[in-house]
Design a protein around this nucleic acid. Structure first.
Length: 394
DNA sequence: CGTCCACGTCTAC
DNA sequence: TAGACCTGGACGG
């Protein structure tokens, strides 16, 4: 689950689980891994990690510094990357890079990445174009945004700007939805409009109480976080909830994570494809820059036996939140012949449990003769689906 | 079985 | 602004 919380937690996992381990030998790479061979070998070395946004840097350090210079590696996780520590004799599928311990029997720290969109590079350099980390470099992140509001990156809708790693290093698709939802900001409001308002608000606060004590300021911000503060606080919630969302016996982790989500994938919320073909989840108005020719999709609210709420699973703030209720039904009534409820939909059977997603319904547009257009063999090629769910333009 | 969808970048018309 | 890059799970017939 690689947005910045998962990357940071991967780093924490490595430091905790591997901090006391000694590794030995060379670094093994799978035949298909998306990264270079790692020219490092040592009969006794340690591994440490540090995260920045969606990147994770590993440092391999020989116990005897004279034996070999340290080797740095910077990973990106793509859509499916993760690190695991497992017996070297039972490597998981798609373990594209492996670091073996000196134990007997040996274990291996593995970079596992089924889809292979992730990669690694040699050296200690973070990717040049990525901005400060929303989690670990909050002040720099904030200033980088507010000082550059004239950048054309902010001409775009806020939901798209939030995925720009030059300004929002660490934010990904579920975080943008969760962040905007907390403030009920329409996802297709213009980014600059939203951020200028943040800037003005800061000025006002300053004028009003120029001598506020720091502690007061902190309280104020915690009570009334602005968008940029939430870009830090929301990922932090996930990181803090580590124990419950990502514990070793990951049996219920996914269920807990889904339970933490307030908007992304949540039944009753609306969704649209943004201009890059990514699904944005939101509630309420899409906003002025919404793509034309699409009807917001809505997963119907089923009568659901709520996700089995694990009462201790959530951070205090969220803990009291009523289990996910459907907001009032709204526009775009679902198709009349929709299969209603029926199954009790236990959120996730033990073991599996996955995004229970309603198949996207081809919207029935309130336009004459949509069928012709909609049914014209939309090419079934893999990526021909960006436009699915569209409505003939007017 | 087949289709759709996924927590992200990249580069090439 | 489309594809391309990939595997695998959910769901439908």
């Amino acid at each position: 689950m690689p947005e910045c919380p998962e990357v940071h937690l991967a780093g924490r996992f490595i430091n905790r689980a591997c901090g006391g381990l000694v590794f030995a030998g060379g670094v093994e790479r799978s035949a298909v891994g998306r990264g270079p061979e790692v020219p490092f070998r040592s009969e006794a070395y340690r591994i440490s990690a540090i995260a920045r946004g969606k990147e994770l840097r590993l440092t391999l350090s020989a116990l005897d510094p004279a034996a070999a210079p340290p080797q740095d590696l910077v990973f990106r996780f793509g859509m499916s990357g993760s690190f695991r520590l497992c017996p070297a004799a039972e490597l998981p599928r798609h373990a594209h890079l492996r670091f073996r311990t000196r134990e007997s029997p040996p274990r291996a720290l593995c970079f596992v990445d089924p889809r292979r969109f992730g990669s690694w590079r040699l050296g200690d350099a973070w990717q040049q174009e990525r901005g400060p980390c929303v989690v670990s470099e909050y002040q720099a992140f904030r200033e980088n945004v507010l000082k550059n509001l004239d950048d054309k990156a902010f001409d775009k809708p806020i939901c798209e700007a939030l995925l720009n790693q030059k300004y929002f290093n660490g934010i990904g698709n579920y975080l943008r939805a969760e962040i905007l939802y907390r403030l009920k900001i329409p996802p297709f409001e213009k980014a600059r409009t939203v951020l200028e308002a943040v800037k003005d608000q800061v000025q006002k606060r300053r004028k009003k109480d120029p001598s506020l004590r720091l502690s007061k300021k902190v309280k104020l911000m915690q009570k009334n976080p602005d968008l940029l503060e939430l870009c830090h606080a929301v990922p932090m919630e996930v990181i803090m909830a580590e124990k419950h969302l990502f514990d070793p016996e990951h049996a219920d982790n996914y269920a807990n994570f889904k339970n933490w989500l307030q908007c992304y994938l949540v039944p009753g919320m609306s969704s649209l494809r943004d201009h890059n073909g990514r699904t944005i989840w939101f509630q309420g108005e899409p906003g002025p820059m919404a793509p034309t020719g699409q009807v917001p999709q809505k997963t119907p609210c089923k009568k659901r036996a709520q996700l089995k709420a694990d009462p201790k699973a959530l951070t205090p703030k969220v803990a009291s939140r009523a289990s996910k209720r459907c907001p009032r039904a709204a526009a775009t009534p679902p198709k009349s012949d929709e299969k209603e409820e029926g199954e009790e939909e236990e959120a996730s059977g033990p073991g599996k449990g996955h995004a229970r997603r309603r198949r996207r319904v081809t919207p029935a547009p309130a336009l004459p003769e949509p069928e012709v257009l909609l049914n014209t063999k939309r090419s079934r090629q893999r990526s021909a689906r960006k436009g699915r769910g569209t409505v003939p333009a007017l």
